[in-house]
């Protein structure tokens, strides 16, 4: 079997409040993520899901356990600064607040920021910036000022900024939480396309069920542990456990479970509205 892109085993991390006190946030996380996967990491605020993302990008250092990302051992005490920066080029991160991650006053200048830091030759930066802006559908805004864009557009510029570094993985740390439904859709469609067309590994950290349902795989984090790990279908089957972890289930899933509780024979775990309609229609025809 090929080496997983991200590998963790019994990963622990605590926030140190002062010298005497520390609160464990991650309590033994073990998981493997393969190259090219589209994974949603789900959990309520304070479950540890954002901390996990920051460990993947070497923003935080683990207390103990194994952590390998893109072949770099991030738990190693001999980790050099060069290795950290090489990893960050490989694993890009898009944050929650679209305003606080754009550096330059012009969109294309901002997208160029990453490649400039990497020391990419000038002529190539131009090509990368144009390609990245085209990939997120923001080419026509290349000369705009970031503060005049909508939230969704700002986030797409942030994605382009990461894309211009040519990463193999992108982590979205609640990147849709501050957006309206339209902006949310823009961002999700953008990273789904990058996953599909460019094979970029996508990790989206969210507390929105409808977003997680679109991923190939859902990992539910609760109280610093992996509560569930599987396809959306497998995960949403555990309606009660999800609710107990402070999460929602899609309304269709909730309906199917409620019907089943009342004795209606429904087989399968529908995720999308279409699947649910199909399932109910078939059950009605049988009668």
């Amino acid at each position: 079997m090929a080496q997983p892109f991200i590998h963790t085993k019994d990963l622990w991390y605590s926030y140190r409040e002062d010298d005497a006190h520390s609160t464990p946030v991650l309590r033994g996380i073990s998981l493997d993520i393969a190259r090219g996967e589209y994974v949603a990491i789900l959990g309520h605020n304070g479950s540890g899901k954002s901390t996990l993302a920051k460990l993947f990008n070497a923003i935080l250092e683990p207390d103990s356990g194994e952590l390998t990302v893109a072949g770099t051992d991030l738990a190693s005490p001999e980790l050099t600064e060069d290795e950290i920066f090489a990893l960050r080029r490989e694993v890009g991160m898009v944050f929650q607040n679209p305003d606080n991650q754009l550096v330059a006053t012009i969109v294309e200048e901002d997208v160029a920021f990453g490649p400039e830091n990497l020391g990419v030759p000038s002529a190539q930066i131009r090509a990368r910036v144009d390609a990245a802006l085209a990939a997120v559908g923001m080419s026509e805004y290349a000369g705009s000022e970031p503060h005049r864009l909508s939230g969704g557009q700002k986030q797409r510029v942030a994605i382009a900024g990461i894309l211009a570094m040519q990463p193999s993985c992108m982590i979205f740390d609640e990147s849709t939480a501050m957006l309206d439904p339209k902006g949310r859709r823009e961002v999700i469609e953008t990273f789904e396309r990058l996953n599909r067309e460019q094979g970029i590994t996508v990790l989206t950290i969210t507390h929105y069920m409808n977003e997680a349902a679109r991923a190939d795989r859902v990992i539910v984090i609760d109280d610093g542990r992996v509560l569930m790990d599987g396809t959306p279908r497998e995960v949403f089957a555990n309606t009660e456990a999800l609710l107990a972890a402070g999460l929602d289930v899609p309304q269709c899933t909730a309906l199917v479970h409620a019907l089943r509780r009342e004795g209606v024979a429904l087989t399968g775990e529908p995720i999308t509205t279409e699947e649910c309609a199909e399932l109910i229609c078939r059950a009605l025809e049988v009668q």
Partner: peptide
């Protein structure tokens, strides 16, 4: 709401 969409489909 998703459930409203479902009702429409049905």
């Amino acid at each position: 709401p998703q459930i409203t969409k479902l009702a429409q489909l049905l």
